[in-house]
């Protein structure tokens, strides 16, 4: 178990991380703010390898909400990548997107919602959707690999077409949870 990660990255055969990257490109997303999650690891690699994208690794997810406002003020489209625990770090900052009517698409990999190993992930994972919706974010879930791309597409569209925070929650079922040989 030593060399293993507790968080699960997408299987090599999974196509949805590359589909998300393609969507970011087709929507003209130029600023990518993130705190890493294993579920986003391939997407992050693709973005880092793309010279036309400005990737910013944040110290806390709420910085990303502020950055998306700045990006939009200057005419750039941005997206925030994080895991569900990071949503909790964003709560008050989400006021900015409502106050200013700022497009703020978020792509959130869920923890603590399907076969989780780590007890610490459960409280925030259980509250993620409620918290986002309480702060005025339109939330859509993708719980099957084939649902990820259309849901992310809708999330990005609704953010920029209707000027508000929006989020896709990628269910833990899509990634699978680590079991450490206990299955």
């Amino acid at each position: 178990m030593q060399a293993e990660q507790l968080d699960k990255a997408p299987d090599d055969a999974a196509t949805w991380p590359d589909q998300i990257y393609d969507l970011l490109k087709s929507h003209g997303i130029r600023q990518v703010a993130l705190v890493p999650d294993a579920g986003h690891s391939r997407l992050i690699r693709r973005c880092l390898a793309d010279d036309s994208m400005q990737v910013v690794t944040l110290t806390t997810e709420e910085e990303g909400i502020a950055m998306l406002l700045g990006a939009w003020l200057g005419g750039d489209k941005g997206v925030l990548l994080m895991q569900s625990s990071g949503v909790g770090n964003c709560i008050n900052m989400l006021s900015l997107g409502i106050l200013h009517r700022t497009p703020m698409p978020m792509i959130v990999t869920m923890r603590g919602d399907f076969g989780e190993f780590n007890p610490a992930q459960v409280p925030m994972g259980s509250a993620t959707q409620t918290v986002l919706e309480a702060m005025g974010t339109i939330v859509r879930r993708a719980d099957r690999p084939e649902d990820v791309a259309p849901t992310v597409n809708a999330t990005i569209r609704m953010a920029f077409n209707t000027f508000r925070p929006t989020a896709t929650l990628i269910g833990q079922r899509v990634l699978g949870a680590k079991t450490f040989g206990k299955d």
């Binding site: 130029r30 502020a66 700045g70 200057g74």
Partner: peptide, 22 residues
């Protein structure tokens, strides 16, 4: 000018997004 009414702690990061865009 963008005077903020909220988002305490956000000002510098708004500046970062804006400076990258412009």
């Amino acid at each position: 000018n963008l005077p903020l009414w909220g988002g305490m702690g956000a000002a510098a990061m708004i500046g970062l997004g804006l400076s990258i865009a412009q």
